[in-house]
């Protein structure tokens, strides 16, 4: 940063200035941005703010309003009060879709985070050290690959693999487990667990990459000291790795939880919520209600409940994070 050298200059320069008054005025102005709000800075928020109001703020308010109406998209919405919400509470598909959200959280948050923690630690601490860091980063790249592609493309490939005459059943036949073959995505018993497995495959690379980056931040002397004290791998994992990368763990679980609550494309590509709604999720349910059933009011109610859930989960997370940070400082 070459400019920092000039920062020592102001004090020396000002008196040398021919007229003192404008220099003082300029200095006052120069202090301005460092403190609070010159009104002029609101101009910079104008384009972003206007776009924000048009694309997110306005539509969000409109959607909440629509959730209290009955509307098919043409004509005028008719105010119906809480009727949509009353219907939601008694709608079995609604409850199924939100119950499936829990399954998505398991498949997209719980399993990938736990597995990712283990894989990252093993890659970093085990493979990276005892073989070559290149081996570790090669394996990391392979595991991360599904994260790179458009998730709907992944969904279509998996949908094809899992067809009754697809590769999954062919593999089972080939290894003599032909008795296990079935219509993985088509039968109510296996559809949801199968979608969950695909989501684990999609998601696992994200925590692995973040955790491996986080581990680079940890002081290697901690590990060396622990090793000298005779701490085994498991002990080091529990008492060094896990606590040290707690901030990243919070970020990963929060972002993945929000992603799990919003999941749409894989369900669209794999099952369209079927068979018989066993894999339906709130976002697909809302989409279907908007654009296939043309029931905009009811769809808006579903979307509003989903938003509320996401905001509540996020607030709970942030509170939990703060509590944990305070507990850490207390120690």
């Amino acid at each position: 940063m070459p400019a920092t050298t000039t920062s020592a200059a102001p004090g020396a320069q000002v008196p040398a200035h021919p007229t003192a008054a404008p220099a003082a005025a300029r200095r006052r102005r120069s202090r301005h941005p460092a403190r609070t709000g010159g009104l002029v800075y609101w101009l910079y928020l104008l384009p972003g703010g206007a776009l924000f109001a048009a694309v997110i703020g306005g539509p969000f308010v409109a959607s909440v309003y629509l959730s209290f109406t009955k509307w098919s998209g043409v004509g005028d919405p008719r105010w119906v009060g809480l009727a949509n919400y009353d219907r939601l509470v008694h709608d079995e598909i609604f409850w199924t879709s939100f119950k499936n959200t829990v399954a998505m959280v398991v498949a997209m948050v719980v399993v990938p985070t736990l597995l990712g923690l283990l894989i990252a630690a093993v890659l970093f601490d085990g493979v990276g050290r005892s073989f070559h860091p290149r081996v570790a980063s090669g394996l990391r790249a392979a595991i991360y690959l599904p994260q790179v592609l458009p998730v709907v493309v992944a969904g279509i490939v998996w949908g094809w693999i899992l067809r009754p005459d697809g590769a999954a059943n062919a593999v089972l036949d080939a290894v003599g487990l032909g008795a296990l073959t079935q219509d993985w995505l088509g039968s109510p018993g296996t559809a949801l667990p199968t979608v969950m497995l695909v989501m684990i495959w999609v998601q696992i690379g994200y925590p692995v990459v973040i955790f491996m980056a986080a581990l680079q931040r940890v002081d290697p002397e901690l590990y060396e000291a622990a090793e000298l004290d005779g701490a085994g791998w498991l002990l080091r994992f529990r008492h060094i790795t896990v606590p040290q990368i707690r901030p990243e763990t919070f970020v990963v679980t929060l972002t993945c939880t929000i992603a799990a609550l919003k999941v749409f494309a894989p369900v669209y590509a794999l099952t369209r919520g079927g068979p018989d709604n066993v894999t339906n999720v709130p976002s697909y349910f809302a989409y279907y209600t908007f654009f296939k059933k043309l029931n905009v009011g009811y769809g808006s109610a579903i979307a509003t409940v989903l938003t509320l859930l996401i905001v509540l989960v996020t607030l709970a997370f942030l509170r939990l994070q703060r509590a944990s940070e305070q507990a850490e400082e207390g120690n």
Partner: peptide, 26 residues
């Protein structure tokens, strides 16, 4: 610029980032 109310503005943007697209799509 440190405009007044900047914390709430940042919070608003963050909230917008979490919003499910279903809420604004129609």
């Amino acid at each position: 610029g440190r405009v007044r109310g900047r914390m709430s503005i940042v919070a608003l943007f963050l909230l917008a980032n979490m919003l499910p697209q279903e809420t604004i799509v129609y």
